[in-house]
Amino acid sequence: MTGRRQHYAHFHGLLPLSSPLERDGRPLVLVHGNCQAESLRVLLAGDGSTPVRTVRVPPVHELTHEDLPRLQRVLDEVDVIVSQPVREGYRDLPLGTADLLARAPRRPRLVVVPVLRWAALHPFQVIVRSPAAGEPPLVPYHDLRTLTVAAGRPELPEVPSARAVRAVRDLSARELRARQERHDALPVVDLFEAAGAEATHTVNHPGNAVLRGLAGRVLAALGLPADVPDPGRTLLDSVHAPVLPAVLDALGLPGPGRADWLVHGEVTTDADVRAAHLRWYAEHPGVAQAGLARHAEAAAELAA
């Protein structure tokens, strides 16, 4: 038995979706999306006393054609689908949000949650998708300062101005609000703002306070009690990015900042990450230029 089959035992049919003791009237919830979706599911599941039942499924980008019958087995029983916006025919498979709704015979309720990205604490950090090149070494994130060097562009300041920090924060909030409105998703910008220095570990890994707040809003949208207990551990804990003291000062937030990366519990210096990424960009021409084009507005704010 593979580790994947054990980890997703209910999904693979090794355990029933509902035992006799669990058939207690609580709705069965499928949470669909990326790694953020699993953390949201953990919070909705709680210690088993929460007002919903959940089933652990692989993130959408890991699902394969062979998984479709297993996913259908789950869809046959779900009462609620909580989903990030996933386009129809994602990766040429019926994994989009609308695809799942169409395949679920019980006509489940849908709650849409946005993809969570927040750059306030990490104004230089961006995500660049390059399927041909894959991910850079050490950490799967890109730094606009390193991208400009790799692309032969004028270098960005090592430490951003207070104005630039706040401009990138506002840009991040504007983009997130646009995603919320475009997909009629639950609001989350205020959760990031309220979480302050604890809002994120990286641009796409929210802290517990944000995730718990969103889980509560999911339950409230279903008309259920919205108290979400602390999970007793840090979710999305694999990577913690550096946080510049100047960024915290610009945002009026407490804390000393963090100079290094923490990757799976091990310290990695920012200098090592940037050196490894420069070598990687040299081996994958065009990635740096594409990244700068994708994040031109943030780069321009940081250069001003």
Rank of each mutant, 00 (worst) to 15 (best):
S49N: 13
T50I: 00
V52H: 12
R53D: 07
V55W: 02
V57P: 07
E66G: 14
E66S: 15
L68W: 08
R70I: 02
L71K: 10
L71E: 04
L71T: 10
R73A: 12
V74H: 04
V78Q: 07
V78R: 03
V78D: 09
D79M: 00
D79A: 12
V80A: 11
P85Y: 05
G89V: 05
G89R: 05
Y90Q: 04
R91W: 01
R91L: 06
R91I: 01
D92V: 12
D92T: 09
L95R: 09
G96M: 01
D99H: 03
A104D: 13
P108H: 12
P108N: 09
R109T: 11
V112P: 06
V113M: 06
L116F: 03
R117Q: 12
W118I: 02
W118E: 09
A119K: 11
H122V: 03
F124V: 02
V126K: 06
I127C: 07
I127K: 10
A132Y: 00
A133Y: 00
G134K: 07
V139E: 10
H142A: 09
L144P: 00
A150M: 13
P154I: 06
P154L: 11
E155K: 13
L156V: 07
P157M: 05
E158P: 09
E158D: 15
V165F: 00
V168A: 00
